[in-house]
Design a protein around this nucleic acid. Sequence first.
DNA 1: CGTCTATTTGAATGTACTCAAAAGCGGTGG
DNA 2: CCACCGCTTTTGAGTACATTCAAATAGACG
Lengths: 194, 194
Amino acid sequence: MASLLLDHVLQYITLTTEEQAYFMSLLKRRTLKKRQFLVQAGEPSKYDSFVIRGCLRATYTRPDGQEYIVQFAIEGWWIGDVDSFLTGEPATYNVEALEDCELLQLDYPSLEELFKVVPQFERYFRLIFQRSFVHLQRRVLAGLSQTAEERYLEFARQYPEILRRVPQYHVAAYLGITPEFLSQLRQRLSTRKS
Amino acid sequence: MASLLLDHVLQYITLTTEEQAYFMSLLKRRTLKKRQFLVQAGEPSKYDSFVIRGCLRATYTRPDGQEYIVQFAIEGWWIGDVDSFLTGEPATYNVEALEDCELLQLDYPSLEELFKVVPQFERYFRLIFQRSFVHLQRRVLAGLSQTAEERYLEFARQYPEILRRVPQYHVAAYLGITPEFLSQLRQRLSTRKS
DNA sequence: CGTCTATTTGAATGTACTCAAAAGCGGTGG
DNA sequence: CCACCGCTTTTGAGTACATTCAAATAGACG
């Protein structure tokens, strides 16, 4: 449903029917097959994308080839390389579909026009970024203060849906540990409970 | 100077003289002595604060007493427990002055009024949170992909001013390592260069 | 000065990593 | 329907990075 995004927006701001229609008219629908890239590191990312269906990951690849997952996104999340989207600089991250996806995309000119025509959207995005800010601060803190085991349990509690849908080595790349070590952790956890 | 904040705002949005005056009229000046708390974990944080002079840290204290630094703030930075400020929930973090400080504070009702009277401020804070978002994503990534040594060098490069002004064990608490280990790192780094 | 706090040094320990190899699992073609 | 192939997860041994605990130094401030 295209209305997943509209519902999301209406949780934060109130819009007239025309404003809603105008907003929807700025969006471009896009589908991605599993393994397709939405954003390629090194090239500018023109769009910010809202996930209607599917699952993606934003990754950073070190010069030595090691990959780290900065963010997952499933239905109801925005994803993209925010910095590149806003500044026009080449993207730092890759964004890749982990399943077949359906997205709604907004390009930067449309967004700025939207802000002019319906200033309420400044508020919507302020609120979205505020939430993300709080959330990221918690994630930083988790990285500082918790062991890999605690972080894994927290992740499993907070995102059971993602845990179910993505391979385990992606979870490891999100938590900042090796797949081997995550496997060991899970082993220990399951024997400890029984 | 009170105008440090105004300059900051005017980098992002344009305001008439009256709007500027109105904005300034909503702010409360506050001074803190070194070691005084701006926010106490457990109690609601009513204000968001902009640093005119001084240096502060936002910390999370684990049940076992271990402290971690979520954010430093010096002149030109906003600081507070954003979540508590917005939701009215008890704060998670402590915010403490590391030097004598001079702040400009905005309470939640004033902020909402400001948004009504000068909607441009939605944009200002959206931009501020966007920047913070990009910045925090980088910090998360650093935690995932870099060793303590790399993170320390990066911190020293990015925030030489803070490095100069705060005791070393605070830097350790920001990087998520022990003061002993940071000392060892610095030892190694200095002998390696010479 | 003397006291309190911050930093350094060192030994023993633990958490997580690397490398290597085996086992499991899912799809695909014969 | 089975056999094989590629990809993911598991298992294990050896290692490295970072911690804990203890004690010695060094700095800062009254």
